[in-house]
Simulated scan of single mutants.
Amino acid sequence: MADQKQIEQLRYAIWMAIMQNKNEQIVQFFNSPKIQINVNVALTNQGLTALHQAASNGNLNLVQFLVAIQKADIDQQDLFGRTPLHFACAIGNLAIVDYLIQSKASTNIQTIGGETPVMKAAQFHQSQLLYYLIETHSDKINWNLINKLGQNVLNIFRISCVNSLEKLNQLSMPINDVKIELMGLIKGEEQHNNQNYENNQLK
């Protein structure tokens, strides 16, 4: 049986392999009969697992291996309460988000700050992902949840708007329907960006 030092070295080796997207090496780590390590073991002091980091890296193949083959805990939370879906939403990786949700990942788990995965998408202004989630997985998401600051996903998305004037105008607006207004804001921003692009092309 491996001693604590060997386990720490192994955790570090797995972590480095994941950071460098060395999928073949990671598969060997988890499939080796000589190396018996739990797929859900925390690899960092923040409680991040292999699945957390694979999702954060945008490594779909590794995410699929860890979930489908290794049976990783899809909803495992780190010390801050973040799940792999929080990380996938933060980077806006549509393929991984879709795969995790299709694999029954919870869309409404909140961090210690009360943030859901879709709030992470809003925080990092992942417009395309939010649009997709409204269109395809809306029934699985509680759009009215609020974080510890009393903000819902629409509040957070408004704050993340790049245009400061638009941000000031949006912040004071009342909210009637989170999904409808979020969709409208995303479409409006897209039209604004397209208009700016066309104007720049004419110069």
Rank of each mutant, 00 (worst) to 15 (best):
6 Q>W: 07
8 E>T: 12
9 Q>I: 10
9 Q>M: 14
10 L>M: 00
11 R>H: 08
13 A>P: 09
13 A>I: 11
13 A>R: 04
13 A>Q: 13
14 I>W: 10
15 W>D: 07
15 W>V: 04
17 A>C: 08
18 I>R: 09
23 N>T: 14
25 Q>I: 13
25 Q>Y: 06
26 I>V: 15
31 N>R: 00
31 N>A: 01
31 N>T: 05
31 N>M: 06
33 P>W: 13
34 K>V: 14
34 K>Q: 14
34 K>E: 15
35 I>F: 07
37 I>R: 07
37 I>E: 03
40 N>S: 00
40 N>Q: 12
42 A>M: 05
43 L>H: 14
43 L>Y: 11
47 G>Q: 09
49 T>D: 10
53 Q>H: 01
53 Q>S: 04
53 Q>F: 11
54 A>F: 07
57 N>T: 02
57 N>R: 09
58 G>H: 12
60 L>K: 12
61 N>C: 10
62 L>M: 05
64 Q>D: 03
64 Q>P: 08
65 F>V: 07
67 V>G: 05
67 V>K: 13
67 V>L: 04
70 Q>L: 04
71 K>G: 01
73 D>C: 11
73 D>R: 07
75 D>R: 05
76 Q>D: 01
76 Q>E: 10
77 Q>V: 13
78 D>Y: 11
78 D>M: 08
81 G>S: 01
82 R>Y: 06
82 R>G: 10
84 P>A: 10
86 H>G: 08
87 F>I: 03
88 A>I: 02
88 A>Y: 01
88 A>W: 00
88 A>K: 01
89 C>D: 04
91 I>W: 05
91 I>A: 08
92 G>S: 02
94 L>E: 01
95 A>F: 01
95 A>V: 12
98 D>R: 09
98 D>L: 02
99 Y>F: 15
101 I>L: 05
102 Q>L: 13
105 A>E: 10
110 Q>T: 09
111 T>H: 03
113 G>S: 12
119 M>R: 06
121 A>M: 06
121 A>L: 10
121 A>K: 11
123 Q>C: 00
123 Q>V: 01
123 Q>L: 02
126 Q>E: 14
127 S>T: 09
128 Q>I: 13
129 L>P: 02
129 L>Q: 02
131 Y>R: 11
131 Y>C: 08
131 Y>G: 10
138 S>G: 13
139 D>L: 11
141 I>F: 09
142 N>S: 00
142 N>G: 11
144 N>S: 04
144 N>E: 07
144 N>F: 03
146 I>L: 05
146 I>G: 04
147 N>F: 00
149 L>C: 05
154 L>Q: 08
155 N>V: 12
155 N>E: 14
156 I>A: 12
158 R>S: 05
159 I>F: 05
164 S>G: 07
164 S>K: 15
165 L>C: 03
165 L>Y: 15
166 E>C: 05
166 E>H: 02
167 K>E: 14
169 N>K: 05
169 N>Y: 14
169 N>H: 02
171 L>C: 01
172 S>M: 12
173 M>Y: 01
174 P>F: 15
177 D>H: 02
178 V>N: 00
181 E>Q: 04
185 L>K: 03
185 L>S: 09
185 L>W: 00
189 E>W: 13
189 E>V: 13
189 E>H: 12
190 E>D: 07
190 E>W: 06
192 H>A: 15
194 N>G: 10
195 Q>N: 07
197 Y>K: 08
197 Y>P: 03
197 Y>S: 08
202 L>V: 03
202 L>S: 04
202 L>H: 03
